[in-house]
Simulated scan of single mutants.
Amino acid sequence: MGRSENLTLWAESPEEARLFLARAKRQGLAEIAEIYVAKRSPKNRSNHYIEGEYFATSNDEHVLVYDEIVIASPKIVALVQWCTCDIMLSWGSEPICVLEDTTHIVRMNVYQRFPRVLKAAMEGVPALALQGTRGLDFSKRGDCWGLHRYMRAYAAASRAFPDIGVLPFIYLPGDDELRAEAEALAYMNALINGDEETAARLRSLKIEEVVEVSDNGYLGHVARDIQSIDVSDTEVTVRIGAQPDKKSWREKGSGQMDPYIGMIAAAKYVYCFDQEGRQTKKLVVSFKFLPSDFFWFKGWETSRSLYKTLAFKIGDRVEFLGKKNSG
C-alpha cells in the first residue's frame, strides 16, 4: 500500500460518514484526511456511485457536501457493484476494508446487506458488519433462528475467504454496542496500520466465534433450512415466488426483489460451497411464476438497477417457469 497517500473515507452518505467519524474518534483510529460520499442524503436513491461518482466534502467532522464530483479509482468502484457499503477506507486509491454499520435486523430479510460485504471479499478486501439486533426478540425461537441463519452466511463466506474475512460484530441494544464497536475498530486499525499479525489474530478469533454459532445455533437454537431453497447433490435451487401481477413491479424501483437478493447470495455460499470453501454445486435462481419475457428484467445486462442484475450475476443459472402471455 502506498502510505504516502492519504487515509480516505468513502461513505454512502454524510450521515454514515459522521457516525463513523464519531466511532473512529472514540476508538483512536488514525486521522482521516479525505472524505467522499456517494449520496447527498440517505433518502437519495441515485446510484451513480456504481460508475465511480462521489461528492467531495469539507473533509472534517461536519461532512458538508459540495457540488464537486470526483471519480473513484477502479478498485474502489469494483467494491460497490453489488451496492455500496456504508463505509470504505483506502490509502488513496488502494482499498483497506469496508464496513456495514446498522442497528436493526429484520428476521424476514436477515441477508439484506450480505451481498455488499461479500462483494468486497470477492475483490480481496476485508469486510466487516457492525450489526445491531434491534427488531429481534431472542425470547422467540424464530428470531434466534434468524440470527443463526445470518451467522451461517458469514461463516460460509469466511470459509471461502479465510485470509480476507467477512466478519460480523454483533451487539444487543444498549452498552453492548460500544464493546462491538471497539472490537470492530481494533481490527480496522490493524488493517489501516498494516499490522498483519494482529489483523490475522483478530480475524481468526472472530471466525472461530462465528463458526461456533453457525455449527451449534444461536442460544442453542439451530434454524431449519429455508423451505424455498432446494439442495441436491449437484445444484442448489432458490425458488422465487414473486407474482407477475403485483403493482410493485411498476411502482417500486426494487420491484418485488428486495427480500431475495441477499438470500440468493447467502444460499450460494451456505449450500454451494464445501467446508474447505470450494464451490461444489451450481446455484439456480428459479422464478416460479414469472415468464421468460417478463418486462421488468428486459435489458438487465445494461441496467444500473442492482435489483435487476444481481440474480443473474450471483446465480450460475437463472430460469423462468411462468407462462408467457398469449398475444
Rank of each mutant, 00 (worst) to 15 (best):
R3H: 13
S4V: 07
L7R: 06
T8M: 11
P14I: 01
E16A: 07
A17T: 00
Q27V: 05
G28A: 05
E31N: 12
A33W: 09
E34P: 03
Y36L: 06
Y36I: 02
A38M: 04
S41W: 04
S41C: 06
E53T: 05
T57Y: 00
T57S: 06
N59F: 07
D60Y: 05
E61C: 08
E61V: 06
E61F: 13
H62A: 14
I71F: 14
I71W: 13
P74H: 08
P74D: 13
L79G: 02
W82S: 10
C83K: 07
T84D: 11
C85W: 03
D86R: 01
M88P: 01
L89C: 07
S90H: 05
S93K: 04
S93T: 05
E94D: 11
L99P: 01
D101C: 07
D101E: 12
T102P: 07
T103L: 13
H104W: 15
I105A: 11
V106Q: 15
N109S: 15
Y111Q: 06
Q112S: 12
R113P: 02
P115R: 00
K119H: 14
M122Q: 13
V125K: 01
A129H: 05
R134C: 12
F138I: 01
S139E: 13
R141N: 12
G142P: 03
D143E: 15
D143P: 02
C144V: 04
L147D: 03
H148T: 03
H148V: 01
H148G: 02
R149L: 11
M151W: 05
M151C: 10
A153M: 06
A155T: 01
A156I: 02
A157R: 00
R159I: 03
L167E: 04
I170T: 07
P173H: 15
P173D: 15
G174R: 09
D176L: 08
E177M: 10
E177V: 00
R179E: 11
A180K: 02
L185A: 02
A186M: 05
N189P: 03
I192S: 01
N193T: 02
N193Q: 10
G194P: 01
A199D: 12
L202K: 03
L202P: 01
L205R: 13
K206R: 14
V210R: 00
V211D: 12
S214H: 02
D215E: 14
D215R: 10
N216L: 07
H221W: 09
H221M: 13
A223G: 09
A223L: 09
I226M: 14
Q227G: 13
Q227E: 15
S228E: 15
I229Q: 14
V231I: 15
D233K: 11
D233R: 09
T234R: 12
I240N: 04
Q243T: 09
D245A: 10
D245R: 08
W249A: 11
R250C: 13
G253F: 14
S254Y: 15
G255Y: 12
P259G: 06
Y260S: 06
A265M: 04
K268Q: 06
C272F: 07
R278E: 14
T280G: 10
K281L: 04
K281A: 05
K281C: 05
F287C: 04
F289H: 11
F289N: 10
S292A: 14
W296T: 13
W296E: 14
F297S: 08
W300E: 14
W300C: 08
S303L: 09
R304K: 15
R304L: 14
K313Y: 09
I314C: 10
D316M: 05
R317N: 09
L321K: 07
G322A: 08
K324S: 10
N325W: 08
S326C: 07
